[in-house]
C-alpha cells in the first residue's frame, strides 16, 4: 500500500470535513428559519465528527493526535479545497455551496466504499448513510428555491456562478492520482468529477437555474497544496482559539 498517497487523500478529506463543518456551525443561532439553524448545526456536528474519524485513521498511520492536527496547523498546512473556506455570505451562497460540495463528497464516499484500504471502506460505508441526509436537505431546498420567486432564482443563480470555479477546485488532481487508482484505494478525481457533473445537472434541470458550460470556467486550484484564499487563516485562528490558550488542558 502506498502510504504517502493514502495519507494525502485522507488529509484533504479530513480537512474538507473540518472546514466545511466549521462554516456550517457559523449558522448556529443565525439561520433564517429555526429548522435551518438546526439543520446546519446538525450537519456541522456530523462533518466535524467525520473529520475526527479521518484524523484518527491518520493517527493510526503514524500522524499526530487528531486535536494536534486540527488545532495547531496554520492555513498553508491545510489541504481543504478553497470552496469550503469561503465565508458563508448570505443564505443563498451557503445553500449553493452546500449543494455543490455535499454532492461531491457523497459521491466520493460512495466510491470509497469499494476502497482496497479496508478501514477506509468501512468508514466510508458509515459516512455515506449520514451524508445522504445532507444531500437530501440540499436537494430539497435547491429544487424549492430554484423555482420559486424571481428573487430566489436570481440570488441562487448569482451564487452558483460565483461558487462554480471553486467547486471545480474540489477535483484538483493529487500528485498520487495514478498510484491511488492503480492500487484501488480511490477511483480518482476525474471519475468523481464526471459523476458529480451528471448529478448536479440532474437536480438543476428540475429548477429554473442554468448551469454554465463548465469547460469554459477556470477551476480555482491550490487548496490541496496549501495555497488558500485570505479567508482560511482567520477561520483557523477562531477555530483553534480556545485550544491554543492551553494546548495541554484535560477536557
Amino acid at each position: 500500500m502506498n502510504e504517502t498517497a493514502l495519507k494525502e487523500l485522507l488529509y484533504k478529506m479530513a480537512d474538507d470535513q473540518l472546514i466545511i463543518g466549521h462554516r456550517n456551525s457559523e449558522w448556529t443561532g443565525m439561520g433564517p428559519l429555526l429548522e435551518e439553524d438546526i439543520a446546519f448545526s446538525s450537519m456541522a456536528q456530523d462533518k466535524v465528527g467525520q473529520s475526527h474519524a479521518l484524523y484518527q485513521m491518520l493517527h493510526s498511520l503514524g500522524e499526530s493526535e487528531p486535536d494536534t492536527v486540527a488545532f495547531t496547523r496554520n492555513a498553508e498546512q491545510f489541504h481543504n479545497c478553497t470552496l469550503t473556506e469561503l465565508p458563508n455570505g448570505e443564505y443563498d451562497f451557503s445553500l449553493i455551496r452546500h449543494f455543490l460540495f455535499d454532492t461531491a463528497e457523497a459521491i466520493r464516499f460512495e466510491l470509497l466504499t469499494e476502497s482496497s484500504y479496508a478501514p477506509l471502506a468501512q468508514l466510508a460505508k458509515k459516512i455515506q448513510g449520514e451524508i445522504r441526509y445532507h444531500t437530501m436537505h440540499a436537494n430539497a431546498w435547491i429544487k424549492q428555491l430554484g423555482s420559486a420567486t424571481e428573487e430566489s432564482v436570481n440570488r441562487l443563480q448569482t451564487s452558483l456562478e460565483k461558487a462554480l470555479p471553486y467547486a471545480l477546485g474540489i477535483f484538483e488532481p493529487s500528485p498520487y492520482e495514478q498510484e491511488l487508482i492503480a492500487e484501488g484505494i480511490f477511483a480518482g478525481e476525474e471519475v468523481l468529477k464526471e459523476k458529480w457533473i451528471s448529478r448536479i445537472t440532474e437536480i438543476l434541470s428540475q429548477t429554473s437555474l442554468q448551469l454554465p458550460d463548465l469547460s469554459t470556467l477556470k477551476p480555482e486550484f491550490g487548496g490541496r497544496t496549501g495555497q488558500h484564499t485570505e479567508h482560511l487563516q482567520p477561520l483557523v485562528e477562531e477555530m483553534s482559539e480556545v485550544f491554543r490558550i492551553d494546548p495541554g488542558a484535560e477536557w
Binding site: 429548522e35 438546526i38 439543520a39 448545526s41 446538525s42 456536528q45 465528527g49 441526509y133 437530501m136 436537505h137
Partner: peptide, 13 residues
Amino acid sequence: LNTPFGPTACRSI
C-alpha cells in the same frame, strides 16, 4: 416530515 434534522444527530422532526 418537518425536517430531517432534530435536537440530536439521530433524530428527525
